[in-house]
Amino acid sequence: MTKRDEAVVRALLAQQGRTYASEAGITLRDTPVPLFRLLVLADLLSARIRADVAVATARALFGAGMGDPRGMADATWQERVDALGEGGYRRYDERTATQLGKVAELVRDSYRGDLRRMHESGDLARLLREFPGIGPAGVDIFLREVQGIWPEVAPHLDRKALDGAERLGLPSKPEALTRLVAPGDLPRLAAALVRVALRDEAAESVLEAA
Rank of each mutant, 00 (worst) to 15 (best):
T2S: 14
T2L: 11
T2Q: 11
K3Q: 13
K3R: 14
E6M: 10
V8Y: 00
V8E: 00
R10M: 01
R10E: 00
L12P: 07
L13S: 04
Q16C: 09
G17V: 10
G17K: 01
S22Y: 10
E23N: 09
L28H: 06
L28V: 12
T31F: 11
V33E: 13
P34I: 04
L35E: 15
F36C: 09
R37A: 13
L38D: 02
V40Q: 05
L41K: 07
L41R: 00
A42L: 10
D43Q: 15
L44D: 02
L45H: 01
L45P: 00
S46L: 12
S46G: 08
S46F: 15
A47E: 15
R48I: 06
R48V: 03
I49P: 02
I49G: 10
R50L: 00
A51F: 04
D52F: 15
V55G: 02
A56P: 00
A58E: 15
A60C: 04
G63N: 06
A64D: 09
A64G: 02
G65K: 11
M66D: 02
P69C: 12
G71E: 14
M72C: 08
A73C: 06
A75W: 13
T76P: 04
W77T: 07
Q78N: 04
E79A: 13
E79N: 03
A83L: 12
A83P: 05
A83V: 15
E86M: 12
G87T: 12
G88I: 14
Y89N: 11
Y89D: 10
Y89T: 10
D93G: 14
T98R: 14
L100N: 03
K102N: 02
K102V: 05
D109A: 14
D109S: 13
S110D: 08
S110P: 00
R117M: 09
S121E: 14
G122E: 08
G122C: 02
L124N: 04
A125P: 11
R126G: 00
L127A: 07
L128D: 08
E130T: 12
F131I: 14
I134C: 00
I134N: 02
P136T: 03
A137L: 14
G138T: 08
G138E: 12
I141Y: 03
F142Y: 11
R144D: 14
E145F: 08
G148M: 04
W150V: 08
P151K: 06
E152V: 05
A154Q: 01
A154Y: 00
H156P: 02
R159E: 15
K160D: 12
A161D: 03
D163A: 13
A165L: 07
L168D: 02
S172W: 01
K173I: 15
E175I: 06
A176G: 02
L177T: 07
R179E: 14
R179V: 07
L180R: 10
P183F: 02
G184M: 09
G184V: 07
D185N: 05
A191I: 09
A192C: 01
A192H: 03
L193F: 06
V196R: 01
V196E: 07
A197S: 12
L198S: 04
L198W: 04
R199I: 03
D200Q: 15
E201I: 05
E201W: 03
A203V: 07
L207K: 00
E208L: 01
E208A: 02
E208Y: 03
